[in-house]
Structure formats: structure tokens, C-alpha cells
């Protein structure tokens, strides 16, 4: 039996912890996407390990245009998307570097 705790454990879950502590967890998903950028691990707990969300009101990232994703992340970072869940995204992406943003956008956009 699967026991689901208050937070998802394992690769998909380290998420916020990583960003807060600056811990790197390069082996976040060792099964198939070895090249996943470290910064993407924090996306997985809501957007799902395969880019298909675990929560109903969270968008699918899998297969989106990388440029669209990059623009979206920058809009959240800079507070151009605001209110409601955009505030959540702002908190999550605010400290990402340019390179992180590009890597995340490319990885989710390029993953099919």
C-alpha cells in the first residue's frame, strides 16, 4: 500500500526545500530524464514528474513551446502576472537565474 504523507517524498518533492536552501539535487529523477535541470525539480511537486499536473488547477507544462514557458516564468518573476496563483509562481521562480529559466523552459518544452 502506498502511504501518502503530508508532502510527497522523494524526487518530486524536494522542490521548495531545494530552492530555499540552495541544495542541488541533480539526481532528482534518475529513471528516465537524467538531463533534467536541477532547478526544474522544484516545479515537479505541483506540475507533476512528467509535466502533467498532480493538481487539477495547475497547467500542463509538458510539450509547451519553450519560448512561451520562458516568457511566462519571466512574467511571474517580474510581477507582470499578478494576483491569485501568480503570487505562488512568483514565490517559486523569483530567485531563478536567467540560465535556470532557459533550462527549465527548454526541458519541459522539449520533453514529450
Amino acid at each position: 500500500m502506498r502511504s501518502l504523507i503530508h508532502r510527497t517524498k522523494g524526487a518530486a518533492a524536494i522542490m521548495i526545500a531545494c530552492s530555499v536552501l540552495g541544495i542541488t539535487s541533480a539526481k532528482a529523477d534518475d529513471s528516465k530524464k537524467a538531463e533534467m535541470p536541477v532547478a526544474a525539480s522544484q516545479c515537479l511537486s505541483c506540475h507533476g514528474t512528467n509535466g502533467n499536473p498532480a493538481l487539477k488547477d495547475v497547467p500542463i507544462l509538458l510539450g509547451q513551446q519553450p519560448l512561451y514557458l520562458e516568457n511566462a516564468i519571466r512574467a511571474y518573476q517580474e510581477g507582470r502576472r499578478t494576483g491569485g496563483q501568480a503570487l505562488v509562481m512568483h514565490e517559486i521562480v523569483k530567485d531563478l537565474s536567467d540560465a535556470d529559466v532557459k533550462a527549465i523552459a527548454t526541458w519541459f518544452g522539449g520533453t514529450q
Binding site: 503530508h6 508532502r7 510527497t8 521548495i16 511537486s45 505541483c46 498532480a54 493538481l55 503570487l87 505562488v88 514565490e91 517559486i92
Partner: peptide, 9 residues
């Protein structure tokens, strides 16, 4: 006050 939940619960 605005409460912002960054967790999936």
C-alpha cells in the same frame, strides 16, 4: 494579509 501556499496541499 495575503497567504501564499507554495505546497501541493
Amino acid at each position: 494579509w495575503t497567504l501564499i501556499n507554495t505546497t501541493p496541499f
